[in-house]
Write a protein that binds this DNA or RNA. Structure first.
Lengths: 205, 205
DNA sequence: AAATGGTTTAACTAACTGGTCAAAGTTATA
DNA sequence: TATAACTTTGACCAGTTAGTTAAACCATTT
């Protein structure tokens, strides 16, 4: 019983990992069940044994992947460190997450454009609340620490500068760095400071 | 002869318009030749008569669409208006372009991630030169008008804040504006000023 | 060791999709 | 008007793809 469970789990995980790769790289329409099976080193019929359909498998992947796309922010923002430290920590952390999941941004943006209805479930299931985010800045504005501006715009500005450079990686790589991966990676690393400074410069009083 | 040419052109344009819609909304893998034919109100075989294959048709679309993605910037930046006016004009203009082509950003980012080799042709054909862009800012830095920072990062920051909010439209709409299209559109309109101010605040001395 | 129940596979099916083709339609030219 | 050249169409084909099925496999229980 124990052993069966373990094997089952292991196969399921192999499938999920293979499917994640395939879907992230190719998108739902470009992904192939056969390819997922090959990547997982199993028979294609097993995919349907564990997950009824391609759609089902995709939903399972999408949920887990979607969580990574939204910064895990609550704990950080509730901790006792200063506002500036929170901001710095967030940017650092988020650029790292995206840098380690280079396909994530373009994947999410494309799939959600294709099926916006997927958002509804994902948001509920994963309980990301933009308010936590917004309130961090509103508080500092109210306290007169930073300049007043619509918090929604400020948040979108910050997220833009973290996410877009990863979503557009091949373009930036190609047009600015002559397709040199290392140069691009250095660029991303630099952005941790650059984005932080850029934001601070803009909102400091 | 004249009439044939006109009809031919008209059919070709109908195809290109239909294909543009289909490809932008669904991506290459999600697009269907049959659907393109229906959208154009013609027989599917005609698609192959005018453009040999789906691949070919896609390339034709991609080239023309890709041009829109890169700001037409040379004329503006070479004109005699001030630096600040150039910046303001650019942001205004670019957000307008993207706002009128809501599928454009996510489409480009996804397709280029899928086939980065497409970039090579597109860049050549369309001759967008990031240097023009970079130099605008470098000059002002050298002249001591704005703070010194790596111009590449500054450009990426500005582009990020223009492009991402459109690429992520369904997410922003869903999470901040309860799927209210008008609220979101207002938000985008506001960003013309917001982004401009945000950049200026950050780089002014 | 035989029966049980979950797991894995090879072979297959039905639907879809890009692409072809021969015939019909249409327009310009001789 | 007849012919030639281009345009458009319906019917068809071959390859691909998600999904099914029945049989084989394997570990545990009796």
């Amino acid at each position: 019983m124990v052993k069966i469970k373990e094997i089952e789990k292991s196969t399921e995980i192999k499938i999920l990992e293979a499917a994640k790769q395939e879907f992230l790289e190719r998108g739902f329409d470009g992904a192939r069940m056969q390819k997922i099976a090959e990547r997982a080193g199993i028979n294609k019929a097993l995919l349907h044994y564990y997950f009824r359909s391609k759609e089902n498998l995709f939903k399972a992947i999408f949920q887990s992947v979607f969580e990574n796309f939204f910064p895990k922010v609550v704990k950080t923002f509730q901790s006792e460190i200063s506002f500036l430290e929170k901001l710095r920590f967030f940017i650092d952390n988020y650029i790292d997450v995206l840098s380690n999941n280079p396909f994530l941004p373009a994947f999410i943006l494309h799939e959600i454009q294709l099926r916006p209805e997927m958002l509804i479930n994902s948001i509920k299931e994963q309980g990301f609340n933009p308010t936590v985010f917004l309130n961090l800045f509103k508080k500092e504005m109210d306290n007169g620490v930073i300049c007043t501006m619509p918090a929604e715009h400020l948040v979108v500005n910050i997220l833009s500068m973290c996410i877009f450079p990863v979503a557009a990686a091949p373009i930036i790589k190609g047009m600015i760095f002559k397709n040199d991966d290392k140069e691009y990676q250095k660029f991303l690393e630099e952005r941790k400071n650059i984005v932080y400074q850029f934001v601070i410069n803009s909102i400091k009083k």
